[in-house]
Design a protein around this nucleic acid. Sequence first.
DNA 1: CTGAAAGCGCTTACAG
DNA 2: CTGAAAGCGCTTACAG
Lengths: 344, 344
Amino acid sequence: MNSDPRASARRRATGRVTLADVAQAAGVSPITVSRALRGERAVDPELVERVRAAATRLGYVPDPAARALASQRGTHVAVLIPLLSNTLFVDLIEALQHTLRPAGYQALIGITHYNPSEEEQLLREQLMHRPAGLIVTGRSHSPAAQALIDASGVPCVHVMETIDAPGVHSVGFSQKAAGAAVVRHLIERGRRRIAFAGAQLDARTLQRLEGWREALGEAGLHDARLEWLNPAPSSMALGARLLEQILAMKPAVDAIFFCNDDLAQGALLAAQRLRLAVPKRLAIVGFNDLTGSDQMVPALTTVRTPRGEIGQRAAQMLLTLMRGGTPPERCVDVGFELVVRESS
Amino acid sequence: MNSDPRASARRRATGRVTLADVAQAAGVSPITVSRALRGERAVDPELVERVRAAATRLGYVPDPAARALASQRGTHVAVLIPLLSNTLFVDLIEALQHTLRPAGYQALIGITHYNPSEEEQLLREQLMHRPAGLIVTGRSHSPAAQALIDASGVPCVHVMETIDAPGVHSVGFSQKAAGAAVVRHLIERGRRRIAFAGAQLDARTLQRLEGWREALGEAGLHDARLEWLNPAPSSMALGARLLEQILAMKPAVDAIFFCNDDLAQGALLAAQRLRLAVPKRLAIVGFNDLTGSDQMVPALTTVRTPRGEIGQRAAQMLLTLMRGGTPPERCVDVGFELVVRESS
DNA sequence: CTGAAAGCGCTTACAG
DNA sequence: CTGAAAGCGCTTACAG
């Protein structure tokens, strides 16, 4: 409560207000200030109050670099996603930041482009910066990447898929079950020749394919020639091309399940150019319920994937892990929702 | 050149290889290692070689936190953009990272949602982390934000617009000229009642509007009732709604310039539902050449904005600034390109 | 061109 | 529940 500025806030050469300044102003030791401000360990409530007041009065702002150096742990969370051009991941990022920022963590975004070696390289870079936590899309691609994560000891949550393995934390949904749900819906509507059109062929696409296979198999409708797999990146243009290829099949298909909405949107537009009646002659279903799918003509049937909820719950789980706690569940399934519109 | 591991790399408690270890192995002082590795100041080439070799041999990795603490400057660049859901900014981010990462900088992305107070809040947070540099979309919205930037002394480059003001660095193009170019194209094609449909109403949208006004004014075709401005976020659904509203006008319009491609795409789909002949009865032009615009039926005429080049050149300019240099130009104009397709 | 000293601002054990 | 000491790993002036 000293009002002499020289005594209450003796500044360093940098002009910055430090922990020591706050300690002096509050009449306690620096370490007590540190503990009081972080809420770590038990500190006399009255002291906490005094410290808080002094910190506010002096305009104290902790230095993340000093904290990181002393604690050997940064204040940011590294987030590895395949792409930013799929709005799926944009929604995920927004949700993550929404939960992480108020807790004092910055998200550092790394884009892997679905490339295992880029993922590994990014992981190496990010880990060098000692992140407090890690969010990774799906299972790591290369064993080397997984080894890096394990060796780092940095808490990690995998998102988008449910991964039920010891020591692995994940938030997502069953991509396979979602794929199967699409097929069952189409069968219910009387479709018999249901093609699967996949691009990129990343792990999750293949899991949806697995669901497609299983559901068709159970109905006795599976035919391997109905699998159209293209490793090129997913895009509207590719969807248009896939549609044309699949239409050339004999016997004709009566439905196509595209592994992502952008493909399905492109196919819908191509169908228009070809004057192909959707859903009358051909049903089209997408995946992810991306922007614009509800605007298409006809509106696209798809699977709504709760990436907002995934981001939020993954962030919460990571927060628990970073504080040294144990999350209630190691593998959280947030489910999915089939959105039936006009195209099926 | 000591091969005794104990002597050549005496580890700290953390097990980390430090500058001191490298110094000892190379037989020089730590500060010389620091300088040799950073390429700062003149160091005897032979020593540099020895230091490099020792660092490689020991697997030395600099600690960003320690560097940040000692130098009072972080190793990351804060990037402020309005949204990630407009792929425009995704392309920008990718280009920025592509140039920044090899130079050893990490991009920290802040999303302002076109909200000045969020921008200010983010700026405050980011600045607290002492970024090495700053990338901001357009002119800062609030004077307070600009003041924060100026006071911080952190090098800053503004992107997307050309801002020709003293002390301001920018890379972009003239949004106004681009808006005018669209209008001139439509006039050339014989259109006379050309509406402007804008959403979000951010600074750059208003600059395009300015170009629209000017070009129409010069042709004696301006009519204030042709301005349709909606502050809601840009989306396909809003584009559809705007189209319907504008179609109700009397006398009828014969062209609409949408300030962003997603609006135009939505309008194109709505036109299909309404069985409105585009471009015969109505020309539609968008802006930014986003994903899918070339796939629309009819394909969308738009303005291709070189965000990849903007990102790359802005990063280079910032790199120069961060190294204490002076970029050759303070305001770089990368231009734009009218892409005439089928909808106009 | 090179180095010894001091310091950046915080936190981690270790005591009490 | 609180604190004195040491240290995290680097860089900034200041000398020479």
